[in-house]
C-alpha cells in the first residue's frame, strides 16, 4: 500500500493517493469538507480502540488521527484525559499507536502526540517506523516550528506529513511560519482552550480560516469543539476539513460494552459524514484545486 511512497517527487507526493492532502482535496472536488476523526489508542483497550478507528472509517471518516496517551495531557479536556489515563493504566505504549496505523491501511492515518513521547522514542527512528507502518505523518500540537528542525528533516526523509497548528491568537507572521512548516494540511484550533465538545462554534474559527487562506493554499482543517452533525455542517461551510475527537471518545465512554461503543462510533461517524456534506454549496469556497495562484 503506502510502501511505495518513499522517493516520489515533491509534486507526486503532495498529491499521492495515500496522503492526507490528497484525500482532503478529493473531498473538496466532491463539494464537501473532509471528515477527520481522532481516537486515542488503548481506550478502553488496544483492540477495541483499533476496531473503533476502523468503524469511524466505515462510517465515513476520511482521515484518522491516532492519539498516543501521555501522562500529562495539558492540552486535553477531562473526557480525553480520563480516556488516556485509562489507556496508560492498561500499559498502552507508542508502539500500540504504530500497530493501529498499520491496521488502518488504505486510510491516511496521522499520529497525534505530545512531543516528549517522540523525543524519547527518537525522532529519526519514529519517522522510520511510522513510514514503515504506512502512516501518513504526525500532528504535533506542542511542537512549534521553531523547535521542529529534527522532525522536519526526518519527515522529509520518509515523505511524511507534518501538521502544525494555528490558533485564534496567531499573528500573520506565525500563520505564515506554520504554513511553511506544514505539509498535508494545517490544523486550525477553533477556540482558545483544550479539547472538548462545545455548544457553539466560535466566529473566531471562521475568521482564523479566512486569515489562513490569505496566506496559503494548504488545506485548512478545523478542530476543537465540534461534536455533532450540525456543528460539522457549520464548520464545513468554511473549512476544508472538520476534525472531531472528544465526541468519538464520549461514544466509547458512554457505551455499556466495547461492541456497543464501536457501533456508536460508527453511527456518529455516519452522522458527521452527513454533516460535512450538508453545508450549502453556495457557502463553500471553491475547491482547492480550482483556486488560482498559490504556492504549489
Amino acid at each position: 500500500m503506502e510502501g511505495g511512497r518513499a522517493g516520489l517527487s515533491e509534486e507526486v507526493r503532495e498529491s499521492g493517493p495515500g496522503s492526507a492532502r490528497a484525500v482532503v482535496e478529493r473531498a473538496g472536488r466532491e463539494g464537501r469538507a473532509a471528515l477527520i476523526g481522532y481516537l486515542p489508542v488503548g481506550f478502553p483497550d488496544v483492540a477495541t480502540s483499533v476496531a473503533a478507528m476502523r468503524a469511524m472509517v466505515a462510517g465515513g471518516v476520511d482521515v484518522v488521527e491516532v492519539g498516543l496517551p501521555y501522562t500529562d495531557p495539558l492540552m486535553d479536556g477531562p473526557l480525553i484525559q480520563r480516556a488516556t489515563e485509562a489507556a496508560l493504566a492498561r500499559g498502552t505504549t507508542p508502539a500500540d499507536g504504530l500497530s493501529a496505523v498499520r491496521a488502518l491501511h488504505g486510510t491516511p492515518a496521522l499520529i497525534m502526540t505530545y512531543w516528549t513521547l517522540i523525543d524519547r522514542y527518537g525522532v529519526a527512528r519514529f519517522a522510520e517506523d511510522l513510514a514503515a507502518a504506512g502512516g501518513a505523518g504526525l500532528i504535533t500540537p506542542d511542537l512549534l516550528p521553531e523547535e521542529a528542525a529534527a522532525w522536519h528533516a526526518a519527515a522529509d526523509r520518509h515523505d511524511l506529513d507534518r501538521v502544525h497548528l494555528v490558533a485564534p491568537t496567531s499573528t500573520r507572521a506565525r500563520i505564515d511560519l506554520a504554513a511553511r512548516s506544514s505539509r498535508g494540511f494545517l490544523y486550525a484550533a477553533s477556540v482558545m482552550g483544550v479539547t472538548g465538545e462545545r455548544e457553539l462554534v466560535s466566529s473566531g474559527a471562521k475568521d482564523l480560516v479566512a486569515r489562513v487562506k490569505e496566506i496559503t493554499d494548504l488545506p485548512v482543517c478545523v478542530g476543537l469543539g465540534v461534536g455533532d452533525a450540525a456543528r460539522a455542517a457549520e464548520v464545513a461551510a468554511f473549512a476544508d476539513g472538520v476534525i472531531v475527537g472528544s465526541a468519538f471518545v464520549r461514544a466509547l465512554t458512554d457505551a455499556p460494552d466495547p461492541a456497543a461503543g464501536i457501533a456508536a462510533v460508527e453511527t456518529l461517524a455516519r452522522e458527521l459524514a452527513h454533516g460535512v456534506r450538508r453545508s450549502p454549496a453556495s457557502n463553500r469556497r471553491r475547491p482547492v484545486a480550482e483556486q488560482p495562484g498559490g504556492q504549489r
Binding site: 506542542d142 512549534l144 521553531e146 496567531s170 499573528t171 506565525r174 482558545m192
Partner: peptide, 12 residues
C-alpha cells in the same frame, strides 16, 4: 529550555 507549548500561547 526552549518552548514546547500549544501555538495558542506563543503570542502571550
Amino acid at each position: 529550555g526552549g518552548r514546547f507549548t500549544p501555538e495558542a500561547l506563543v503570542v502571550a
